[in-house]
Design a protein around this nucleic acid. Sequence first.
DNA 1: AATGAATGAGGTTTCATTCAT
DNA 2: CATGAATGAAACCTCATTCAT
Lengths: 194, 194, 194, 194
Amino acid sequence: MNKTKNLIFKSAIKIFSESGYRGATMDDIAANAGLVKGTLYYHFKSKEEIFNFIVEEGLQILQNQVIEVQNMNIGPIEKLIKICRIQLTFLYGYTDFFKIVMSQLWGTEHRQNELRHKIRKYINEIEINIRTAMEIGEIKKGDVELIAFQFFGSLCSSAIYESIHIEKINLEDIIESTIKFTLNGLGIDINRYI
Amino acid sequence: MNKTKNLIFKSAIKIFSESGYRGATMDDIAANAGLVKGTLYYHFKSKEEIFNFIVEEGLQILQNQVIEVQNMNIGPIEKLIKICRIQLTFLYGYTDFFKIVMSQLWGTEHRQNELRHKIRKYINEIEINIRTAMEIGEIKKGDVELIAFQFFGSLCSSAIYESIHIEKINLEDIIESTIKFTLNGLGIDINRYI
Amino acid sequence: MNKTKNLIFKSAIKIFSESGYRGATMDDIAANAGLVKGTLYYHFKSKEEIFNFIVEEGLQILQNQVIEVQNMNIGPIEKLIKICRIQLTFLYGYTDFFKIVMSQLWGTEHRQNELRHKIRKYINEIEINIRTAMEIGEIKKGDVELIAFQFFGSLCSSAIYESIHIEKINLEDIIESTIKFTLNGLGIDINRYI
Amino acid sequence: MNKTKNLIFKSAIKIFSESGYRGATMDDIAANAGLVKGTLYYHFKSKEEIFNFIVEEGLQILQNQVIEVQNMNIGPIEKLIKICRIQLTFLYGYTDFFKIVMSQLWGTEHRQNELRHKIRKYINEIEINIRTAMEIGEIKKGDVELIAFQFFGSLCSSAIYESIHIEKINLEDIIESTIKFTLNGLGIDINRYI
DNA sequence: AATGAATGAGGTTTCATTCAT
DNA sequence: CATGAATGAAACCTCATTCAT
């Protein structure tokens, strides 16, 4: 990615995350990058293309790390824990990117359908581990897909937390707490309540 | 709420959920309601007002149910379980409304800041119960706020699940699974891994 | 056609004829109609739609008159003479419209292909009469299609004449001269030269 | 004309003929020539200059041939016949060029006024012969100018014919038919109808 | 000579809002 | 109450032109 394209890339992430896809204007993106609108169109065919480029690049980074874990010679639970850590580190490293994803995960516009499709594929990786863990008896049988989404939801929770919570956070604390919550929930003896 | 206003209300929820706030046009909202654009302005001052009205009404319904629970004479865990059920039932009953909230929870526009503020207040209710549960030793000490968000995140997970998953779901199954996940996570003996 | 739409229609004909399809701007059309750009889009979906509307309406008027002639109980030559008169009267009555057609008859853009197709259909009407006249021996056998185009070309000639020639013309003189030219050409004894 | 300039020249003719002056983009012209936009500006000052260059070169070729005829020691009718043949041969040899001229013959933009002016001068050559032919009694008296345009219109007819008619044509057939039409029209005994 | 990048003026289109009826 | 027409600000996008290399 050449210098100007990278400038646009970064600027667009900022603007999209602040204003959403529709709310972001090409003028804003250009101005924020210290460029002129026309220049954006030299490097990208359209606003939509900038968006797709961002999504592609961002998810690639996350996906790559996950695949690395998947190829490790460790058990499914260890993999899930690692993925949890990756997800959260990613979230706090690329907060703006994440907000973009979150805001565009809903709705029926083409770009939104596409994005959901990509996220679905990502969750598949998680699902694989949960299924394996069930098969070898490490976690109780259940709706694999649903549980995979709940696992992924930890990301979502943290994103909302980050979005609403203003004070500085400590990433390690959050990772630890989230992993614990994912593994044990509130840590309640379920039989006492259900 | 008179008949036409209600028509607009329902139409706007549908359109906002499909296209987001910015993507939704007054024309779309009107057409979907079988009305004409001008008519909307008889019942609402602006697009923003329609949005606010929807958010207010929607969250009111949720909030009311939660307050009812809060006033019950039961323990904090029981309350949390009930709230979990309420949240999910609400989510599946008002899916479109929920998508609107989810899509507008990010970004720095006024309407988005406002919405986050309201959600923050809602999460406070959850926080109260978690704090109490900690105080009476029902759950282990931890970052109350973060855990409250993780609890709320179950909602988020389910919303994404609903959004991505196409097949018909069984609400009771989801509620049961989610409550279990919330109480026990993946049900892993944490000491073996951390 | 309501008042404003008619205003736009007339304005667009003027602007298109002056600047061609691409050279004409929506701002020009609006300003010339005493309106604001946005108003154009209330009545027409796009610039292309305005263009199509103009072509449709214009050719309709011409076509209607020709069909009337075709239905008369007269010989093919008489019909051709009448059509020649109609064409020229139309040309001088709707000069601007004609210039639009002429300027858009070339090129490979969609709108141009469409227009050629429509003109082709119009020329068919002429062709019918030429074929009949040949069959009954009123004119010599020859390439019917080509001759039909040459007949239609009289229109073209006059349009160029009108376009280049600035002085006031007398319509009846032109009609008479053109009919003569069409029937007899330069009036040369062909055998002396070919 | 050096190689690259010639490349641009040919490419521009093709693109202008396909899209008209306004519709043609410098990018299209460059790409079609296997060059890059910037290169065009090394050889031509502007788009308009490319256009003028094309018109100049094209008309020069036609004009030269006509002047050659004018200098011959033959009668005016013979000259007209030769010019007719030249015109048609030129039209079918430089179809794209001709389409450019035809599409730019209308409208009030500078380039269009200029072009009309040049065509007017060309028609003057025809006019001279018609006037002479009238003076020596070879053709009947009439509006010299108008008849000259009608003569020139045969070109126009053929251009439209070429543009609309898809099948392969035989140039000699067209030339013969057009000359006949020019000399004798439909070959009708005018007194029977007027 | 040729190129690729950048520019900015200006084009088409969208759309929330206003208003007379 | 409801409507249809009109508006204008602002959005996305195009493209001729310039310029450093």
